[in-house]
Amino acid sequence: MNVNDILSISRTGLNGLQNNLDIVANNVANSNTVGFKSRDTSFTDLLENSTTPQDANVEDGQQNKMGMTMGLATHQQSINFTQGSLRNTDSPYDLAISGNGFFGVRGGDGQLYLTRNGDFTRDANGNVVDQAGRKLDVQVTVPENQWPQGTVSISQTGQIAIENNGRSTQVGRVILYQPTEPQDLQAVGDNLYRLQGGTLNSSLNGAAGLGTIEQYHLENSTTDLADAMSNMILTQRAYSLNSKVLQSTDDMLGTINEFSN
């Protein structure tokens, strides 16, 4: 192993720690985001090279029992889909899922996205939408722009009823979705997920294991702020140590170059 190899190892360490720092910072920034699921990072060693007698002062034959990795890489980040705590609200269109499942929202192109963010409202056209204007996937029995005035009630199974003057009108049902495998979901930003391969089940086809809908509730982020801040400090210190190793190696390389000249 030469000095250039050490520089390369330090570089992979800095890159990996920077990726981890970005993920931790994103978790911290979304600690108050409704329905946000924190990300976890894992690291993996790169190719391991056996040592030579020039690398380590060991007895003959012992160097093959030792090895030096060529650095580290950030493993694909995983999403923590555990249930977040629920908090009470005063809006009838604030919804949370207790258990598994996702709400479906439609973008302007009709693309289906999944989310745990149940911060919904009614727009000027009467549609139930999220804060970005994406329509909540609802199986309607009465067109949304024709829903009567009154008190909105959404059951745990998603049935939407509007009560007016003692009369209850069933107007639709909120649909819940669940992928067969959580790893089939790809985060696309803005607290949204898209199915990449696999199968998507819904409450309409009687999929088992789906949770219940809690009206007048929102789901909190799963970010543990104290744990995330501790992780950030440890990552920053590890980054600082790696940068010092890189600087020391660079100084060594400069000294070697002076002697060679």
Rank of each mutant, 00 (worst) to 15 (best):
E214F: 08
Q236Y: 05
D109H: 05
G206M: 01
Q156T: 09
S98T: 13
Y177P: 05
I97N: 03
L195A: 08
D22M: 11
D60N: 03
Y216S: 00
T52A: 02
N220F: 01
N26R: 01
Q18I: 06
L225E: 14
M68K: 09
Q178A: 00
V152R: 13
F120S: 01
I162G: 07
R116Y: 08
E258F: 00
S168I: 11
S202C: 01
T115C: 02
A208V: 07
V34E: 06
A238W: 11
N100C: 04
L95F: 04
Q62Y: 10
Q76R: 09
E181W: 03
T89P: 09
L204S: 11
S38V: 04
D227E: 07
L204P: 00
L95D: 04
S260M: 14
D250C: 05
Q62M: 02
A132W: 05
G254V: 11
G197C: 02
M68Q: 15
L46G: 12
Q149I: 12
D137K: 03
T51W: 10
N49R: 07
N27S: 15
S168R: 03
I6R: 12
S78K: 12
N27T: 09
A25S: 07
D45M: 13
P182N: 06
I23C: 01
L86M: 15
R11F: 12
A238S: 14
P148A: 05
T52R: 14
Q247M: 08
R39V: 15
D190P: 11
I6L: 13
G209T: 03
L14M: 15
S50L: 08
A238C: 11
A25F: 11
V129Y: 10
I233Q: 00
S91R: 15
L185P: 14
Q247D: 10
D94L: 10
G110I: 07
D94M: 12
R237C: 04
G166V: 00
S155A: 03
M229K: 01
I97S: 11
T141Y: 06
E144Q: 15
S168G: 00
D119Q: 12
N117Y: 09
T157F: 01
S243K: 04
G197V: 02
Q236C: 04
R134V: 00
F259W: 10
G211S: 02
P179W: 00
Q131A: 01
G166E: 07
I23N: 11
D60A: 11
N4S: 13
G16I: 00
S155V: 05
Q159C: 03
T41F: 09
M68R: 05
N80F: 03
T44D: 15
D60V: 01
N15F: 08
V142W: 10
D45Y: 08
S42N: 14
L225R: 13
G107R: 09
Q77T: 14
S155P: 07
V174Q: 05
N57G: 01
T33A: 00
R167D: 02
A132S: 01
L225M: 09
E48A: 04
A124M: 08
R173C: 01
G16R: 06
G172F: 00
G13M: 09
Y93T: 11
K244A: 13
T249K: 05
P143L: 07
I154H: 10
T69I: 12
M232V: 02
S85L: 10
N261E: 14
